[in-house]
Computed example of a mutant assay.
Amino acid sequence: MRLMRHAGKIAFSVALIGAVCVVLMLFGARLGLWEPITGFGFYRTYLNPLGMIVAAVGLLALLLHLARKERGGVLLGGVALLVGLACLAPMIGGMLNPQQRAAPIHDISTDTANPPLFEALDETRAGARNTLDYGGPDLAAAQASAYPDIAPLDTALAPDAAYDRALAVARDMGWEIAALDPARRRFEATARTPVFHFADDVVVVVTEKGAGSRVDMRGVSRVGRSDQGVNAARIRDFQQRFGG
């Protein structure tokens, strides 16, 4: 009887612990607890079981307190149930609206014929499992099929002004600048995803084109066969922020 009387508090405590666990899965790498791929592995392995446990405990507490007409317990059980359902939301959403699988590529360039090369960043970068060597025609064809809109950015700005603008946009986007070469109008940087803190390495090169200039960009994920479209999305965001 005593356990039944405190079911809501127990369910709320379980939900609180579950919520902390989810936060750690998502942001533990940012806190320096583990590598991004480790947090992602925890997420894929434990999120759904955790959500089921929290939801089940919350539902049980809700029903018990409803039967006993204890409003406080009903509230706590309901909160726990909602937390559990929130954890299950990605799985439920995927079942109701299956998403198309992202292309199995992680190296995206605005110029696939002559992709910008990395010079400062190399194979020793922390946690890297993917090479910085470009995959050639096969990769170019896969990118053209998956992301046909990715192309160089043409701007009316003079080359030096375009380089300054590109560097300012990169800093506004929170990239960690790894190397600058103003004389050649190129820089290398590392961009990190907000969730899991995955690192993607980026090189930007500005060249003269007519009265204006052309801005090329390439992004390579350090881990994973597929980047889930992150590098293509980052290029689009960069170009939109840059403007014409």
Score class of each variant (00 low, 15 high):
R192E: 11
A120C: 09
N231F: 12
P36A: 06
A55R: 06
D164R: 07
A29S: 12
V57P: 11
A144F: 00
A162V: 01
C21R: 11
F242Q: 12
L139R: 12
I53M: 13
D216M: 14
W34Q: 04
L82G: 14
I177L: 09
A86Q: 08
L180Q: 01
A89S: 07
A166R: 02
A103Q: 04
R218I: 00
T190G: 05
M173H: 03
A199T: 10
A199F: 11
R68E: 00
M25F: 15
K209F: 06
T131H: 00
G224I: 00
V83T: 14
G127W: 00
L132Q: 01
A140F: 08
V202M: 03
R222G: 00
F238V: 01
M91P: 00
A103H: 06
F242M: 13
I17K: 04
L63G: 00
H6A: 13
R68G: 04
G18P: 13
R2P: 06
A120T: 10
L139C: 09
S221W: 11
L81Y: 03
G136H: 03
R186C: 01
A166Y: 07
T193A: 08
V203R: 02
E188C: 03
D172E: 15
P182T: 07
N114W: 08
M25R: 05
A29Y: 04
I92H: 10
R101L: 15
P49Q: 13
V79K: 03
V203N: 05
H106M: 02
I105Y: 02
D200W: 03
T124K: 14
A15D: 00
A233N: 07
I108M: 08
H6L: 13
S145K: 12
R129T: 10
M25L: 10
D237Y: 12
A142G: 09
L88V: 01
R71I: 10
F118W: 02
A233C: 04
V203C: 05
Q239F: 14
A161K: 13
A156M: 08
F242K: 08
L59S: 04
G224R: 01
C87V: 12
Y147M: 04
D154Q: 12
G77V: 04
G127T: 02
V195E: 02
I92Q: 07
P159M: 00
A141H: 13
R214L: 11
V195I: 15
G39V: 08
A142I: 05
R68D: 06
I177P: 06
A55H: 02
G94I: 01
R184G: 00
E176T: 15
T38E: 13
L157T: 11
G18Q: 08
A29I: 02
M4N: 10
I108T: 05
L64W: 07
V79M: 05
G78I: 04
R185D: 00
G41R: 05
V20G: 07
L88Y: 13
L59V: 11
Y46G: 07
A189I: 01
M217V: 15
V169T: 13
G84D: 00
E123A: 15
Y46C: 04
A56G: 15
M95L: 15
G84S: 02
A141I: 11
M4K: 09
D201A: 09
R184S: 09
I235D: 02
Q228V: 13
G18W: 02
R165N: 08
F198H: 07
L85M: 12
Q99I: 15
Y147N: 04
D237S: 09
A178S: 15
P182Q: 03
L180P: 03
D237M: 10
R236G: 08
G78A: 14
R241S: 09
R129A: 14
